[in-house]
């Protein structure tokens, strides 16, 4: 199952015309690792949104390694590059013991609500008792959106009316989850830009409720990141982490042409693992993140 999903993802990635691997291949075609080579490698990395700083850092590491080992072949160099990147994205995740409360956060439009549907569907298939909470009481039809998903997936939803206090929705949901012996409660939150102090305070408050009421639950805060996002994602991750302590990241929209390179910089800098990857708009379009496979895919 997992493998075929990766195959699907690979197919989707390969569909993009100028994919990473092809470029690296071109760069390495001549087999001489001179300044031009490193410059082009840097460019290739930057085009994945990894950021100039990280790109230079990686290129420098590779340069050192090549000098150290007197590497000559394309294969060797490719291997080093993959190792460097795999190292960067390999971070131990938090064990997902149940009962668990997941709070899903992120800026506007990244795919939070859809990801919740995907997660709910996944856990349900694993035989877990899942409940979702419509914690976005702000955006028009946000509750209706999650409600529609909960019907499609077949999980229970706790909701309130537009404009209600999101903390109270989450409070009610935790009560319901306890009463019904739910394994996993997933709370939606309204999208918010990380530089809006009031909205971040509101999120902090929701988080406080979760921590206080969720006694006995494994609390797991997921941040959703859109792979299309550029360097700003790093700011986002930092500020959200300061606010609610993120324990995992979901990288969405990898079915597009974006490579999500910024995620590499984020993991490297913050040591928060990516747990899942979104590769489409359907329930089943969510796969577990695997650092090695992720890096391999970049070069496929």
């Amino acid at each position: 199952m997992e493998l075929s999903l990766y195959e699907r993802m690979r197919n989707k990635l390969i569909k993009t015309k100028d994919n990473f691997k092809e470029k690296i291949e071109n760069v390495m075609y001549l087999g001489n690792f001179d300044d031009d080579f490193f410059e082009e490698l840097e460019e290739t990395l930057i085009l994945t949104d990894l950021g100039a700083e990280s790109a230079m850092k990686i290129t420098e590491q590779l340069r050192k390694k090549i000098i150290e080992t007197h590497a000559k072949t394309k294969e060797e160099v490719m291997g080093f590059l993959k190792d460097i990147l795999t190292d960067m994205v390999s971070v131990e995740g938090k064990p997902q013991t149940t009962p668990m409360i997941m709070m899903v956060v992120g800026v506007n439009g990244v795919g939070k609500t859809t990801t919740i549907a995907k997660l709910a569907s996944r856990y349900k298939k694993e035989g877990k008792k899942v409940m979702v909470a419509a914690g976005d009481t702000f955006r028009a039809a946000a509750t209706e959106q999650l409600e529609e998903w909960s019907k499609r997936v077949g999980v229970e939803i706790i909701k309130s009316t537009k404009g209600a206090d999101p903390s109270s929705v989450v409070f009610d949901a935790i009560g319901a989850a306890k009463a019904r012996k739910t394994d996993i409660l997933i709370c939606d939150t309204a999208g918010r830009l990380h530089n809006k102090v009031n909205l971040m305070k509101e999120l902090e408050k929701i988080s406080r409720i979760v921590n206080r009421e969720g006694d006995g639950f494994n609390i797991h805060n997921l941040m959703v990141l859109d792979a299309t996002t550029g360097q700003n994602a790093l700011n986002q991750a930092k500020v959200f982490h300061d606010c609610v302590e993120i324990s995992g990241i979901v990288l969405t929209k990898l079915d597009g042409t974006s490579k999500g390179g910024i995620a590499i910089s984020i993991i490297d800098e913050m040591q928060i693992p990516i747990e899942y990857v979104g590769i489409g708009e359907k329930q089943e379009d969510l796969i577990e993140f695997d650092p090695k496979k992720f890096v391999d895919l970049l070069f496929e």
């Binding site: 930057i46 085009l47 994945t48 949104d49 800026v107 439009g109 859109d226 299309t228 996002t229 550029g230 360097q231 700003n232 994602a233 597009g256 042409t257 974006s258 390179g261 910024i262």
Partner: peptide, 12 residues
């Protein structure tokens, strides 16, 4: 277009 878009904005 989302102002936070990265390198892919051109292709999009």
């Amino acid at each position: 277009v989302d102002a936070m878009t990265g390198q892919e904005s051109v292709n999009v």
